[in-house]
Simulated assay, not measured.
Amino acid sequence: MNATPSPTPGDTAPHQPPADAAGAPQGVPHPKTIKSFVKRAGRTTTGQAKAFADLGPRFLLPYAPQALDAPAAFGRSAPLILEIGFGMGEATAHIARVRPDENFLCCEVHEPGVGALLKRIGEQAIANIRILQHDAVEVLDHMLPEGTLDGVHIFFPDPWHKKKHNKRRLIQPPLVAKLVSRLKPGGYIHCATDWQPYAEQMLEVLTAEPLLANTATDAGLGGYAPKPEYRPLTKFENRGLRLGHGVWDLVFRRPA
């Protein structure tokens, strides 16, 4: 897929990731602080557990309320990309392989997902990923000073389908402002979703941020970007595309 089509009425079939996209329990009030995750059930496999034991000491970083020394953590100085919520790590591993000159700091709290990415790191000999098994919002607040990031990836965050739960969505003005403050001039935010109402909200929120500029210049795409070559199609996307569902990428940049 070379370009992502603009949303069309009725094209609202949701992405179907694991249980974190199932929606909130009835009657639970909207939290006062943004969280980048939803706790979900899942079992760590034997292979994932072995990856934790063998590779965790090298690739897992401890959360600490102090600025991250990225060159020390990665063993080199390189552009730093933050990924928030990588699921089972399929896309993360692919992107790290095709962009070996960049460092990828990846936040995910779901233990089977962390184990799955560690397993991929070992199988594919990936060296430029480090994982923080912690809430990305707290990582932003306490470990990433302003002007330290070259990019941010947020792919298929929980869409919170029910209107009464929309306020739980991750892409909201306060978080976007926080992300922008951590970007270097020239840095970018890349979001992707396959839920049309969330795509529209993302576009609205990112467009309203005064320190960001939309990289999508083709008026025919309605403000949505062609899918960057580095982002692979996941199994969920491929299944959705076969069913005629849409996928929307948004790439905004902080002007240099």
Rank of each mutant, 00 (worst) to 15 (best):
G246E: 09
P157E: 03
P210E: 06
K50Y: 13
A192C: 09
G186R: 01
H165Q: 11
W195Y: 14
A125P: 05
A53G: 02
E111L: 14
P174T: 05
G222K: 05
A19V: 10
M143D: 00
P173M: 03
L206Y: 07
E204Q: 14
K184P: 02
K167Y: 04
A127H: 12
I126M: 06
P228Y: 03
A216G: 00
K163S: 13
K162G: 00
R253G: 06
I126P: 04
L118G: 02
Q66D: 13
A21H: 10
K32D: 15
A64Y: 10
T46L: 15
K162V: 00
P29I: 01
H30T: 15
G85K: 08
A22K: 14
Y198S: 09
V176T: 09
G186S: 05
M88R: 14
D135A: 10
V205N: 10
P65G: 11
D194C: 01
R43F: 12
N238L: 14
T8M: 13
F86M: 11
P157K: 06
R254V: 02
V139F: 08
D141H: 13
N166M: 10
A213L: 12
A127F: 03
R99G: 03
M202S: 00
C106S: 14
R120A: 15
E90I: 12
Y198N: 02
A51W: 03
V251I: 13
G220R: 10
E204H: 14
V109Q: 11
A93G: 15
G244R: 04
Y63M: 07
K50A: 15
N238D: 08
L82G: 02
T215I: 02
G187D: 08
S77E: 15
H94Y: 10
A93H: 05
N103H: 13
H142F: 11
A13E: 13
V152M: 00
Q201D: 15
L250W: 01
M88C: 12
L203S: 13
K227N: 09
A13G: 10
L241N: 02
A51L: 08
A225T: 14
D249V: 00
D158Q: 00
A93W: 10
N128G: 05
E123R: 14
A93M: 07
G23D: 02
A41C: 11
W248H: 07
V176L: 03
P7L: 05
C191Y: 06
R58I: 11
C191E: 04
P255G: 07
P5W: 03
P173K: 04
I121V: 13
A78R: 03
L55D: 02
A21L: 04
L170H: 06
P210S: 01
L250V: 03
D150Y: 08
F155P: 01
G85T: 07
H94I: 06
T33I: 12
P100T: 08
I84D: 05
G113M: 00
P210R: 01
L117M: 05
G56V: 03
M88N: 14
T8S: 13
L55P: 00
D20N: 15
P14M: 01
F252W: 13
Q48R: 07
P17T: 06
V137S: 06
A67L: 04
D20K: 15
R168Q: 05
K227F: 09
A93K: 04
A219C: 07
